[in-house]
């Protein structure tokens, strides 16, 4: 039943005895964790969208200098960022594998894949930290330019969300042998969603933070930032 037809029901009308559709419904499997995750991802999306919108607005002020595009700008060399992207992709893959193994009831393989996924996250964070150091050494510390304000802030915030994911996964480790055959694949499905979401988010941030000025200008224009807006 679509949400529209649900909302146009006339609830005061009696349903024929024994044929009330509300009671006929085959009970869908309740999965509140999945609903919660959907809303959580929506909330996180709003959070990052707003940061990005402020970045686009800020990029239209005259003193804004992007971090990439010209050879002398620090992020024109993206090797460090590609490395961390690779690590994060690997982590997502491992999480997917863990989920797949769990459906095959391969407990050891699940443990291995899960460990690898977490380890790759930690490596990713370390790789990001290396990029930070490189940037800072090149004279683009946290507070040095408006663009680096955003670079550090957004990467840090993304990292915090990854760490949150790692913490959420820890109980799964502890209960790996206790989890019944039913719940583990479900839990890992949700972990996969979260992992892939953060990978996708990272790819977007990567693209945005290393975009040349024209790209930002186009995006800002699409968001309606004119000269007088900010």
């Amino acid at each position: 039943m679509s949400i529209f037809s649900k909302l146009t029901e006339k609830p005061w009308l009696a349903q024929p005895e024994g044929q009330d559709p509300a009671l006929q419904l085959t009970a869908d499997e309740a999965w509140p964790e999945r609903t919660a995750l959907k809303f959580l991802l929506a909330t996180i999306s709003v959070l990052f969208s707003l940061f990005v919108i402020t970045l686009l607005g800020r990029s239209q002020l005259p003193d804004f200098q992007v971090l990439a595009g010209e050879p002398w700008l620090p992020l024109s060399d993206r090797s460090g960022l590609w490395l961390s992207t690779g690590l994060l992709c690997g982590s997502s893959l491992m999480m997917q594998l863990a989920q797949w193994f769990s459906r095959q009831h391969l407990a050891k393989a699940v443990l291995g894949a899960l460990t690898a996924a977490v380890a790759l996250i930690l490596l990713f964070l370390f790789a990001q930290y290396r990029v930070w150091l490189q940037l800072a050494n090149a004279g683009f510390g946290f507070t040095d330019t408006a663009a680096s304000n955003y670079f550090y802030l957004l990467t840090a915030l993304h990292g915090v969300h990854l760490l949150g994911g790692v913490i959420a996964v820890l109980p799964v480790f502890l209960q790996l042998d206790k989890q019944s055959g039913q719940t583990l694949p479900r839990t890992l499905t949700l972990c996969c969603w979260y992992w892939h979401y953060l990978l996708l988010l990272w790819l977007l941030l990567f693209w945005l933070l290393t975009s040349p000025a024209q790209t930002l200008n186009t995006l800002a224009a699409l968001c309606g930032f004119g000269e007088a807006t900010l």
């Binding site: 649900k6 509300a22 009671l23 309740a30 509140p32 609903t35 919660a36 809303f39």
Partner: peptide, 18 residues
């Protein structure tokens, strides 16, 4: 998250949205 999920997932039998 709790309130939203409880409304969406924990309604008793027969409790449609409307």
């Amino acid at each position: 998250l709790n309130y939203v999920c409880t409304v969406l997932q924990a309604r008793t039998r027969g409790m449609t949205l409307m």
